[in-house]
Amino acid sequence: MRAQLTMVGKETHHKAIERVAEWLELSRTQENLFINLAHELSSVPDTNLTHFDERYLQHLENNVFSDPQLLGFLERSGIDPTVIEQFETKQIPYDEVYQQWNVIEYSINELLDLTMLLKLIKQYSDQSEKGLVDSRYRLQKLVYLVNRRLVKQERAERDTAPYDHGKLEKTGFRYTYRKRKSGPYSKNLRDDTYRLYASDLIDEKLVQGESTPEITEQHTRLEISLGASGRVMMGRFSEMMADLDTDVLSEWESAINAVIEEFGPMSIEEFHNYVNDIEDVRNADDRKLLIRGRQVKYDNELWRTETTQEGLSDA
C-alpha cells in the first residue's frame, strides 16, 4: 500500500536550491549530492544575507549555480548541455522551476518514519518557551538519544542482526550515527531535513551571529518548526497513529516522550556537555559508528515532482 501527498510549499527563494534540484529530475542519490554541494558552495560568511530574499537568489546565481564545481557535477551527471549552459549564463527559468508541485510518495513504513520525526519536532516545540526546536544541533541529538534509549532496552527475543540492537531492531528512527566534532551526527537525518524543508513539512528560520557546536551551524543557528504542510500532515495522520495500539509505536513514542521530558529544558551548552560526556561518545574516535539505525531499505524515489495537484490518495 502506498500513499501520495501533495505539498504546496512557499515559493520563496530560500528554497531555490531544493527547487532547482527537483527541476533537474536527478536520481535521488544525484539529487542528494547536488543539494549538498550547492549548500557547501552557498556557505559564504561575507554574504551578510539577513533574509532569503532576491539578494539570496542573486548570490546563488553568481556564486553557486554558475560555480565550476557545480557545472562539472552537472556534466558528469549527464545533464543536457543546453541546461548546463542555462546555469553557466545565469538564465535558469525560475518560473518553470517554481511552478511545480511537490509530491511525496510513501509506503506505509515511510509514512510512519516521517510522521514520527514530525511528532518529535511538534512535542519538543509544545514544551519549549519559543514554541520550536531551537537548532539543527538539538534535533540531531534528540533523535540520537531516542535511538540510544531503544538500543539500551532489551528485547524479549534474541536480536536477528549480528550486533546488539536492542529494541531499535524493530522500532525507532532509521538514522545511523557516527562520532563527529559536534558529537553524534547523522548525515541521513541532515539530508532528510533538507527535503522536509523543501516541501514545507518543516520551516527553518535563520538566526545570524549565533553558533552551535553543529558542523552545519557555524556563525548561524537554524530554528526548526512545523511548516504549513507539516501541520496538515500531523493533523491527518496523528489520530490514525493513535489508533494503532502496537508495541512498536508505543515503545518508540515512550522513548520520544522520555527524552524530551529529561533533556528538553537544557540549554544548548548543557545539552552539549551531557551528550559528549556519554561514555560511548566520549571514547569514540572521529567518524566511529555509534548507533546503527533501524535497518530498512526503501525501493522508491521518496521525493519527486508533478505539475498538477493530486492531493492525498492511496496507490
Rank of each mutant, 00 (worst) to 15 (best):
I104P: 00
I35C: 09
Q86M: 15
Y56A: 00
Q100T: 11
I108L: 12
D126N: 03
H13E: 13
R294H: 10
E261N: 13
G209M: 05
D277W: 01
E279C: 00
P81F: 05
N273G: 04
F173M: 01
N257M: 09
Y94N: 05
L71Q: 05
F263K: 06
V146Q: 06
E88F: 14
T171Y: 09
N48S: 04
N32D: 13
Y98E: 12
S313K: 08
K205H: 11
R178N: 08
S250H: 14
G230P: 11
A255H: 04
P81I: 04
E22I: 13
R174F: 09
R55T: 01
R76T: 14
T50E: 12
K119S: 15
D192P: 00
L289M: 06
I291S: 00
Y274D: 01
R148L: 12
Q69L: 12
L5E: 08
A38R: 02
G209K: 04
I215A: 02
E310T: 14
Y124Q: 05
E169K: 08
D280H: 05
L244H: 07
S66H: 08
S238T: 13
E251F: 14
N276Y: 02
D46M: 10
E210F: 01
R136Y: 09
I104F: 09
Y124T: 03
K170M: 12
L302K: 11
K130Y: 08
F34G: 01
S135Y: 01
S229G: 13
N32Q: 09
K15T: 06
S43K: 13
D243E: 14
L196F: 10
A228Y: 07
R138K: 03
L189F: 04
D95W: 07
Q58G: 09
K179E: 00
K167R: 12
R282M: 07
I84H: 00
V83S: 00
E210R: 05
N48M: 03
A255S: 13
L139C: 01
M1P: 15
R148D: 09
Q295R: 09
Q4R: 09
T47G: 02
A242S: 10
I35F: 02
R294I: 07
Y197K: 05
I92E: 07
L70D: 02
N283L: 14
P81Q: 08
L33Y: 10
Q99K: 15
V143S: 03
K167W: 07
Q208I: 08
H165L: 11
M233S: 05
E270T: 01
Q91C: 05
T176H: 04
I278E: 02
N188V: 03
D159A: 12
T12L: 06
L196M: 11
N300L: 14
I215D: 04
K205A: 11
E105N: 10
D80V: 03
G166V: 06
L168F: 04
R221T: 13
Y98R: 11
N63R: 15
M233W: 14
R28D: 15
D243G: 12
Y94V: 02
M240N: 11
Y94E: 01
D192I: 07
E204V: 09
E96L: 11
Y144T: 00
Y163H: 11
H219V: 08
Y274I: 02
V64S: 03
N48R: 06
I92P: 03
S254W: 03
A242V: 08
E251S: 13
N48Q: 08
E214L: 07
A242C: 05
D247W: 11
A38D: 04
K297W: 14
G172T: 08
D285K: 08
W252R: 08
F237S: 10
